[in-house]
Design a protein around this nucleic acid. Structure first.
Length: 942
DNA sequence: GTTAGGGTT
């Protein structure tokens, strides 16, 4: 019986036992459109490496194609791998096909999704999510386990599907024996065909009922006066139009004379809009009608209501969850306002945006199709046909609007080379690619040259968003792996908290007991600890009851637990040690921060936070930090809806970010200056990360920052200016030398004797080594160098004097004046206008009477010239005219007056013995008289 | 003062 296929299977299958389990006779019963072209498809699969099958819902492609592949002889040298976008579909399809092939799920037909692998050695058809197939690439680069791959629902164009389609195109050449089938809704199938070298396309009709589309554009009158049209549209016009459309559906049904009621599906863009529509319909809609919201985050119990047939008419208001993921039963009418929230990652602001946008034609058609599954339906579009036709044909594929870090990292691990040259169906925007690389660099997963690092390989091994995986790797050395795994697992599944709209307060109160005042993340740890303690204590029934009472979704708790368990196993493989002791706040949050560096924020005015790249953001209202507003926080998500919200946040210290930031941290320095007390050059450092100032003004040692500049400042402000606590002979020597020259400058009333600072700077600059820029390094060096050359740093008089000093200086500017038998000190000061300008005789009080006025008039020889000139200039014009040129007169008069100065003749005591000193004015008068100019006593000015 | 929807080594 089995002999016919044995040679075929045994020849190449080797250890693959699945072939032996394939049934001989395939049951083709069932009235499915795809079966009409069964034989052509079988022939096509045999003849071509790639076949594209386009068909709408009800065509039977999903269940029949694997059977067609079997009939074409596939599944003989490897399994038929069949992917689905969603886990639930993979399971469901597996069980339907298993039934048709009269085998058990987990035997001939199996499935593999996260947390559940129901395949066996004899499995020849394996259903799986596309993510699982991608993950298997890590172990099985050529996908040797399969001889046929079916990529189902390729039109959904998720990141996974686009990556697979690109990869498979490169794989086909290396695996000529591999067959590939791609199924899609009947949209854009030519694209798929072109991508795979003109693969044949089979279009199979759908088994659905006709849908009449009616266009009922929303009246914008109400919105016309408003400033924000979009807001008005949702607030006023759409609910009104929905009420009218519901009325139209009921009229249509009455006109049809249908016996059974048909339900109405209304598409909506957000939970908020669903509430609004629900309220409006309850108020103004038809009576005796059940209004049911439907969205993914709704509790299971509330979602379940949609699937339980009630007796009355129902209007289901749903998000896009009803477009592809869930099939709402008994829908005869669809009302489509034509909007949806579309995720768009902004590479500019690094923020995930969720703008409400007009949906594509493809999406609108998919929505309309939802009412043609059981009977002819009516779809009322709340926009015009022209509007519809003006819309883009297809929704942008995910690869065009998402952060690409994870894909890039996977491609690096798989060694797929240049992402720009990878055969994607749609090439990702190069700016998104660059941004993805930037994030990986921020995480340390790639280096500056964009090569994957060891850390990057660890991150890639964890089935997590790269940011979350980074946290896990960081946690172990910080002794916080337990806490971080609990948190990361929670962050990668849906939030287990239920918050029913009518019991929000009760839910919040129940959740509050697990809260931590500073961290939304520790909520998960606190909850985890309580749940973990129950495991040995309570029965599952009691634990379910606990979850229900505390508004926790049992399903999502399970996902959390299973994710955690998977991560724990992987961490063992990565040799990351688990901490037994509870980790302190700081350790946990430092680990988390490694993944969230670009999602920190600083408190600004009001409640607003300053997020990276000059963005304003608000803490999400559900956060424990929403009211508190600590100065620095980090957030697991930065999402823009009405505003930019920081979701799941915790208080941090900016220093943590500073330490982690590495090369990302920008440092700038200001006001470098010498500090005598510290004996070094310091400056104010400002650190910033992504434009956020972490520390504005921190005094730091400037030497390691800029040694050359610090050294210059040290020489200039410490050594040259002398502002340094230095007990050194050279220093005293140099200081004295300089002081002496400065005194000379005062005496001679000039400022050009002392060499300028540049010269002194040059002196030290030449001698002080380049690595000396502080008191300590200077002294260490000096002690060494002075052992060899004691005078190495001593200035000479010549080095300090700018000009050769006049030898007569000591005579012309004596340091003392002998008066009445005493040598009294003279003080010179050069500062015109100052009280002490000129020369000052320091006279003890007791001697005041003994000093003749005349002595003081003469000053000192060096100043006599100035004094005489000033006196001559002060003469009346008539007299002065006779003395021109004045400088000549001064010079010749000085020749005569010099010897007459008191004390001019050495050894002759002034004012003692001999005649009393002559007054300067009298002597000058005599000298002028000898030149024929008579000056009266009254001619001298003041 | 409130988040479209999927998926995983």
């Amino acid at each position: 019986m089995t002999t016919e296929r044995r040679p075929d299977a045994a020849a190449s299958a080797g250890a693959y036992p699945g072939a032996a389990a394939i049934p001989q006779d395939i049951d083709w019963s069932g009235d499915l459109p795809v079966l009409a072209v069964r034989d052509e498809l079988i022939a096509a699969v045999r003849a071509h490496q790639v076949v594209i099958v386009a068909g709408e819902t009800g065509s039977g492609k999903t269940t029949q194609l694997p059977k067609i592949c079997l009939a074409a002889g596939r599944g003989r040298t490897g399994m038929i791998g069949h992917t689905q976008p969603r886990r639930i579909a993979a399971r469901a399809v597996a069980s339907r096909i298993a039934e048709e092939l009269k085998t058990q799920v987990g035997a001939g037909v199996g499935f593999k999704v996260r947390f559940s692998d129901q395949t066996a050695t004899q499995t020849y058809l394996k259903l799986m999510t596309d993510g699982v197939l991608l993950a298997e690439l890590g172990q099985d680069r050529l996908l040797r386990a399969y001889d046929t791959i079916i990529i189902d629902e390729a039109h959904e164009r998720s990141l996974n599907i686009d990556f697979l389609l690109g990869y498979l195109r490169t794989l086909l050449a290396k695996r000529p024996d591999l067959k590939l089938l791609i199924t899609s809704a009947t949209i854009d199938v030519e694209r798929f065909s072109r991508h795979f070298a003109g693969a044949p396309v089979f279009v199979v009709e759908g088994r659905s009922y006709p849908v009449e589309t009616r266009y009922r554009p929303v009246s914008l009158e109400a919105a016309a006066s408003s400033e924000d049209e979009g807001f008005e549209l949702i607030e006023e016009a759409i609910p009104r139009a929905v009420v009218e459309a519901v009325e139209e559906c009921l009229q249509h049904e009455r006109a049809q004379g249908r016996s059974a009621r048909g339900d109405i599906l209304v598409f909506s863009s957000s939970e908020r809009e669903i509430r609004l529509l629900a309220d409006t319909l309850r108020k103004y809609g038809p009576p005796h009608t059940e209004i049911l919201p439907l969205y993914s985050r709704l509790s299971v119990a509330e979602q379940q209501k949609v699937f339980e047939r009630g007796s009355g008419r129902r209007i289901v208001i749903a998000t896009n969850v009803a477009e592809t993921s869930l099939t709402v039963p008994n829908i005869h009418y669809v009302i489509d306002p034509g909007f949806a929230r579309i995720s768009r990652y902004s590479y500019r602001s690094k923020v995930q945006r969720l703008p409400v946008e007009a949906v594509s034609q493809a999406s609108a058609n998919q929505r309309a199709g939802r009412c043609g599954r059981i009977a002819p339906g009516v779809c009322i579009r709340l926009y015009s046909e022209a509007d519809y036709l003006a819309r883009p044909e297809f929704t942008d594929p995910e690869i065009r609007r998402t952060n690409l870090a994870a894909v890039i990292l996977q491609m690096q691990v798989l060694g797929l080379g240049d992402l720009e040259r990878f055969p994607f169906l749609d090439a990702p925007d190069s700016r998104l690619v660059n941004d993805g690389f930037r994030l990986l660099e921020e995480l340390g997963a790639v280096d500056r040259q964009r090569r994957i690092t060891t850390l990057g390989r660890q991150i890639a091994r964890l089935p997590l968003d790269p940011r979350l995986a980074r946290m896990v790797v960081a946690a172990a050395p910080l002794g916080a792996l337990h806490e971080v795994l609990v948190i990361v697992a929670a962050l990668s599944v849906q939030d287990p908290r239920d918050r029913p709209h009518d019991k929000q307060q009760a839910a919040d109160e129940r959740h509050a007991q697990f809260r931590h005042p500073d961290s939304d993340f520790l909520f998960f740890v606190n909850l985890w600890d309580v749940l973990a303690a129950q495991k040995g204590e309570l029965t599952e029934r009691e634990r379910r009851e606990f979850a229900r009472k505390h508004f926790l979704s049992w399903l999502r708790l399970r996902e959390w637990r299973e994710t955690w368990r998977q991560l724990v196993q992987l961490c063992e493989g990565l040799k990351l040690p688990m901490n037994r002791e509870p980790a302190p706040y700081e350790a946990v949050h430092r680990a988390l921060l490694t993944g969230l560096l670009s999602q920190i924020a600083h408190k600004g005015d009001d409640r607003e936070y300053q997020a990276p790249r000059n963005q304003k953001a608000l803490v999400f209202p559900g956060s424990v930090l929403a009211r508190k507003g600590p100065p620095w926080i980090m957030a697991a998500e930065l999402v823009e809806t009405h505003r930019v919200y920081l979701r799941l946040a915790a208080k941090i210290e900016p220093e943590w970010a500073e330490k982690l930031a590495g090369d990302l941290l920008k440092r700038s320095y200001s006001e470098p200056h010498w500090e005598r007390r510290q004996g070094r050059v310091v400056a104010f450092e400002q650190t910033s990360l992504f434009g956020l100032v972490l520390h504005a003004r921190r005094k730091v040692n400037y030497e390691p920052v800029n040694r050359a500049e610090a050294r210059e400042i040290f020489i200039r402000d410490a050594l040259v200016a002398g502002d340094i606590d230095l007990k050194a002979a050279f220093f005293r020597h140099n200081r004295e030398l300089i002081a002496e020259v400065e005194r000379l400058e005062d005496k001679t009333r000039r400022r050009d004797l002392l060499v300028d600072e540049e010269t002194l700077y040059a002196f030290y600059d030449e001698r002080v080594p380049e690595d000396v820029a502080s008191l300590k390094t200077f002294e260490d060096w000096r002690h060494r160098v002075e052992k060899e050359q004691p005078g190495h740093l001593c200035l000479s008089r010549e080095q300090v004097l700018a000009k050769a000093a006049d030898d007569g200086t000591a005579h012309d500017f004596p340091d003392t004046l002998r008066v009445a038998g005493h040598d009294l000190p003279l003080r010179y000061h050069f500062e015109p206008g100052h009280e002490a300008d000129g020369v000052t005789l320091l006279l003890p009080a007791g001697l005041v009477q003994e000093v003749p006025e005349a002595v003081l008039e003469w000053l000192v020889p060096g100043l006599l010239g100035d004094r005489v000139e000033a006196l001559l200039r002060g003469l009346p014009k008539a007299l002065r005219r006779q003395l021109v040129p004045l400088p000549d007169t001064v010079a010749s008069v000085l020749q005569e007056l010099g010897p007459q100065m008191p004390g001019a003749q050495q050894g002759r005591p002034q004012g003692a013995g001999g005649k009393a000193p002559e007054s300067l004015l009298a002597a000058l008068g005599q000298a002028l008289l000898r030149r024929g100019v008579r000056v009266g006593a009254s001619d001298w000015a003041g």
